[in-house]
């Protein structure tokens, strides 16, 4: 076996990952069977499937950051975003598909935090794939039972008078936090403001950067 080894770390310093030599699970086999049948019967091509995966992978928090920055500079857009976040995102040219999106606004008195306690619901069509920690039992249970402790671990220190609102995406809606615009950013352009908007600030586990 060429890859037998006893060192826990590779020469580049990463832990070795076990090869996935176990047999396919029931659902993996089902996925392959359905996919191959769809291709065989001419409903889809392998290339169309690969293209769709590429399109999903190309979505990133930068899309959401652009939406947030627009809301910071354009009060009318912000009103439309808070009224119907899906329509407002589509208006900016982001194809979010069937996503039902709600934007919740952070203010000097309210801090919002997004979680999906049941699984891993996340606004993927706008922000791309969720971070791994978002899907862990630890985050999913603690975000609802002790959100302030979770926020402190993420380095978010809230003023004493701030109320925390946790949003559990239990059904058909997905959520994005509209973070508060940092003070002292009056001179930045919309594109520069978008660079301040981190992924975590749109989940609520972070706040925007204060400077470029």
């Amino acid at each position: 076996m060429p890859h037998d080894h006893h060192d826990p770390l590779s020469p580049s310093g990463h832990p070795y990952r076990q090869d996935n030599d176990e047999p396919l699970s029931y659902w993996q086999m089902m996925e392959i069977a359905v996919r191959e049948l769809m291709i065989e019967k001419g409903h889809l091509t392998a290339n169309e499937i690969a293209t769709q995966i590429d399109a999903m992978d190309a979505r990133s928090p930068a899309d959401g950051a652009a939406v947030v920055a627009r809301a910071w500079v354009d009060p009318a857009f912000k009103a439309r975003l808070l009224d119907n976040a899906g329509a407002a995102s589509t208006e900016m040219g982001f194809d979010i598909g069937p996503l039902n999106l709600i934007a919740v606004e952070n203010t000097d008195k309210i801090h919002n935090l997004i979680v999906c306690t049941l699984c891993s619901c996340y606004p993927r069509n706008l922000l791309g794939l969720p971070p791994d920690w978002y899907k862990t039992r630890a985050y999913r249970s603690r975000a609802v039972s002790e959100p302030r402790a979770v926020l402190r671990e993420f380095g978010v220190e809230l003023a004493e008078y701030v109320t925390v609102r946790v949003h559990d995406s239990t059904a058909d809606m997905r959520y994005i936090v509209l973070p508060a615009r940092p003070a002292g950013t009056e001179d930045l352009t919309e594109a520069e403001l978008a660079q301040l908007v981190t992924r975590d600030s749109m989940i609520g586990t972070g706040v925007p950067r204060r400077t470029l």
Binding site: A149, V164, R165, H167, A171, M173
Partner: peptide, 27 residues
């Protein structure tokens, strides 16, 4: 489908970190 808002005091009782914090869920 509705978005229902609960207080943390209602959900967790005396274990709530901050009673007036809220939790919204779709029910």
């Amino acid at each position: 489908l509705y978005r229902v808002r609960f207080t943390m005091a209602e959900v967790w009782g005396t274990r709530a970190e901050r009673p007036e914090d809220t939790l919204d869920a779709e029910i």
